[in-house]
């Protein structure tokens, strides 16, 4: 590693001045945050300029920040009657970071020449979430973007073949969105009368065994 993370962060801030929302260094990893308008310009520079040369795109993934920082259950002291097992959805635990948009697509870049990694997070304010595809820059983005489209409904403009990839043929909805129930909406079973597999509304109910809590460590 020729440059330390701090230096690299400085260089990135200088080079992309005005194009970024934020550039931060946390747990030893650099994250650039930006909006869809500047994504292609920044990515092109990151790939082609020799001081960055991020030749490989390791990963693209969607993130849904809908419930970020929401806990199910909160108490700091005991009560005389004991605790109920009830789970309240959506207790806000504390003041948490707010995000410029609900959805983001996150790119993990790798430079083999400089042996260095970088994360780019692109917030997607439009509805439906939309961003330019980076398949032209890194062919490896092809399936990752299809996956993010399938699971989060993020539309990648200019993607050559934006089909669902992981879910079933004819699947409805985007299952990794935070407002998509864990148990799903429909289930399949074999119907002996109709002699075929049919779809029906789910008959199972999700029980939260361990509530989600947020505590200061």
């Amino acid at each position: 590693m020729s440059l330390t993370n701090d230096h690299l962060l400085e260089r990135l801030r200088e080079r992309f001045n005005g194009l970024l929302l934020d550039a931060r260094l946390a747990t030893g990893q650099i994250t650039l945050e930006l909006l869809p308008e500047s994504l292609i310009e920044v990515c092109l520079a990151l790939r082609d300029e020799p001081e960055f040369s991020f030749a490989q795109l390791s990963d693209v993934c969607g993130v849904d920040y809908l419930n970020y920082g929401k806990a199910d259950w909160e108490t700091m002291d005991t009560t005389s009657t004991g605790f109920s097992r009830g789970v309240d959805q959506g207790v806000y635990a504390k003041t948490v970071r707010t995000f410029p948009a609900r959805f983001a697509s996150v790119y993990q870049l790798l430079s083999l020449t400089h042996n260095r990694r970088l994360r780019v997070r692109c917030f997607l304010p439009s509805d439906p979430p939309q961003v330019s595809s980076v398949t032209e820059l890194w062919p490896s983005a092809n399936w990752f973007e299809r996956e993010a489209f399938d699971l989060f409904g993020i539309l990648f403009e200019g993607h050559p073949d934006l089909r669902r990839i992981l879910t079933d043929y004819g699947f409805m909805g985007h299952p990794f969105r935070k407002d998509f129930p864990l148990e799903g909406n429909v289930e399949v079973r074999y119907d002996p009368d109709q002699k075929r597999v049919i779809y029906q509304p789910v008959t199972i109910e999700n029980r939260v065994l361990v509530p989600r809590v947020i505590r200061d460590a």
Binding site: S58, D59, C61, V63, D64, N67, Y68, G69, A71, A93, K94, V96, V106, Q108, S140, W143, V210, R212, V213, I214, R215, D216, A217
Partner: peptide
């Protein structure tokens, strides 16, 4: 690779598994 986002809770907020076989 494991990309892990935590919002301070006892459960992960988002986890993305980057598998080589997929690529």
């Amino acid at each position: 690779g494991v990309y892990l986002i935590s919002d301070g809770a006892n459960k992960p907020y988002r986890i993305k598994i980057r598998s080589s076989a997929f690529t």
